[in-house]
Design a protein around this nucleic acid. Structure first.
Length: 286
DNA sequence: GTAGGATGCTAAC
DNA sequence: TTAGCCTCCTACG
C-alpha cells in the first residue's frame, strides 16, 4: 500500500525498532539479497529515512539498504523472530532478539553507497513530507509543461511521494480538472495543492492510511454508510467510479491516464473556462 | 482452482 | 506506448 506516507511511516517504524539496537541478524530467505545480507549480518542500523517512495536503511560501516516497494511490495513487523520463521518469499529479514521485520515483493532491495543514494535524491522532486523541501522547483516544471496536471503529480521527478490516491483526491479537493495542462495551473493553485498534500500526507503517516474527506463529508456527518474496501480511509473519488459524488451527487468517472486509473468528478472538477456555462463538460481526448 | 487487478517504475521499442 | 517485474487478495467458477 505504498504512497509516500507509507514509506515515511516505515522509516519511523524501522528507527523505533532497530536504530542503535546493537547487531542485527540480516537474512534473505528468498535468496535474491543473500550476498548483501551476508555483508550486513551483525551490523548495526544507525538511521532510516525516506524520500518519496524510496526507503533508505543506514548501516554506517557498510552503506545503505535502498528499498522501493513498487506496486506489490509489503513490509511486516513482528516480535519473537525465533518463533516466527520467515516464509520463502521474504526478500529481507532484519531481526533482534525482540523484534523482526520482513520485506516481500519489492521492486528494489539493494545495498548502495552514499554516492548512489545521493544520485537518487537528485533525481527526485521535493517531497511534501520532508520539512525542508521547497515546492518551487516543482511548480517551475509544472508551469513549463503541456502535460496534464494529473500526470505531472505522478511524476516523481516533479514531486516525490504522491501516488494514485493522493493525486486523485487533491485534485478533487481543489476542484481542478485532471486534464488541465500544467502550464495553466496558477501559482495560488499550486500553493494550495502543496499545502494540502503536506497536511493530508502527514495525517496519512500518523494514521497509516489515506483519509481525504473534510469533516462535513464524513459518513457520520452525511449519514451515509462508511467505505467498505481494503484501504480503510474515507475518500472522495478514488476507486469510486459510477458512485455518486459526496458533494454534487453526480457520477464519479474513471479513465486511463498514463497506464493508471484516474478518478474524478466531472461536475465538481470542471475546466475553469466552461464552469460558467451550464453545459456538460467538454469531450476529452482519449 | 484460477484469473485478474492493485496505492509503481523502468527499459526497450 | 508496451512489456515486464514482484506478491497478495478478491471475484468467479
Amino acid at each position: 500500500m505504498p504512497e509516500g506516507h507509507t514509506i515515511h511511516r516505515l522509516a519511523a517504524d524501522h528507527r523505533e525498532r532497530f536504530q542503535d539496537c546493537g547487531p542485527l541478524r540480516v537474512t534473505s530467505p528468498q535468496g535474491k539479497f543473500s550476498d548483501s545480507a551476508a555483508l550486513l549480518d551483525g551490523q548495526e542500523m544507525d538511521t532510516a529515512e525516506a524520500h518519496g517512495k524510496h526507503l533508505f536503511l543506514g548501516f554506517a560501516d557498510t552503506g545503505w539498504i535502498h528499498i522501493h516497494l513498487g506496486l506489490f511490495g509489503k513490509v511486516n513487523f513482528g516480535t519473537a523472530a525465533a518463533a516466527n520463521p520467515p516464509t520463502d518469499t521474504v526478500r529481507l529479514r532484519l531481526a533482534t532478539k525482540d523484534a523482526y521485520v520482513d520485506l516481500r515483493g519489492p521492486t528494489t532491495c539493494a545495498l548502495i553507497t552514499d554516492e548512489e543514494k545521493q544520485a537518487i535524491h537528485e533525481r527526485l522532486g521535493p517531497d511534501p513530507l520532508r520539512p525542508q523541501d521547497d515546492p518551487a522547483p516543482a511548480y517551475a516544471r509544472i508551469t513549463r509543461s503541456r502535460t496534464t496536471i494529473a500526470a505531472l503529480l505522478m511524476d516523481q521527478k516533479v514531486i516525490a511521494g504522491v501516488g494514485n490516491v493522493y493525486r486523485a483526491e487533491v485534485l478533487f479537493r481543489h476542484r481542478i480538472d485532471p486534464y488541465t495542462p500544467g502550464k495553466d495551473i496558477r501559482p495560488a493553485q499550486w500553493t494550495a495543492i502543496w499545502d494540502d498534500l503536506v497536511a493530508l500526507m502527514r495525517e496519512g503517516v500518523r494514521l497509516n492510511r489515506i483519509d481525504t474527506v473534510r469533516p462535513e463529508h464524513t459518513p457520520e456527518a452525511m449519514g451515509r454508510p462508511p467505505r467498505v474496501d481494503d484501504h480503510g480511509g474515507e475518500v472522495y473519488v478514488y476507486r469510486r467510479a459510477t458512485m455518486p459524488c459526496h458533494i454534487c451527487g453526480g457520477e464519479i468517472r474513471t479513465a486511463d491516464l498514463a497506464a493508471r486509473n484516474l478518478f474524478w468528478c466531472p461536475k465538481c472538477q470542471r475546466p475553469a473556462r466552461s464552469r460558467r456555462k451550464a453545459e456538460a463538460p467538454l469531450p476529452r481526448p482519449a
